[in-house]
Amino acid sequence: MADITRFQPASDQSLMVYFGDRITPDAHRRVRALLQLLQTQPVSGVRNLHPGYGSILVKFDALTLTHDDLERALRTRVARLDSVQLPEPRLIQIPVYYGGAFGPDLDELASSHQMSAERAIELHTSGDYLVYFIGFVPGFAYLGGLPDSLATPRLSIPRRAVPAGSVAIGGHQTGVYPIATPGGWRVIGRTPLAIFSPARAEMSRFAIGDRVRFVSIERDEFEEMARA
């Protein structure tokens, strides 16, 4: 297979590694594999890694490393990507209370697709989603796999604060807000689980490559889990 890996300086202290310019399973596998290689066998002088859908941004100490040296070190690792053993994806179940005060946009979202709220919930919980990467804010999982029939444009005016745990749809994406932030996605429910918790050994509930399934729960189950 032709090597389509492309290296490009992003700043005077960072280098972008692109595996193509589309969101594909192969590009995602390569991102995961290179990330794992760089975490288990770090390149001296590399300070941070920011994975994306089909790329990894490598930040480095420009006083000890140059773009050329880093690119050379990365190329030797990229050449070995096909032999990297990736851990089996985990299946992470996320309980969600849909609608009501926790999902203020559910009814409008459903009716914009000429379906009932129940049907929208059924669709949202029907398949597995892939965690392409964690980014933007701590613990936020970029998920792939939203059914096309649920894709909905973002709100024209973003909310000033979306509560932590909110489950939302924005365009062709769906996700869970790990912390309260401003946001323009349509909020359809909320999970009682802490998505990002500094007190836990594994701070982020999601990891790159995980499979995610949303499970609809009742209000009393939500309250019980939230207390746990």
Binding site: A10, S11, Q13, S14, M16, D21, R22, I23, L49, H50, P51, G52, Y53, G54, S55, I56, L57, K59, G135, Y142
Partner: peptide, 12 residues
């Protein structure tokens, strides 16, 4: 081009 979400550098 068509943007796909990617890592961003300090000072971008």
């Amino acid at each position: 081009g068509r943007m796909v979400t990617e890592g961003v550098s300090l000072g971008a």
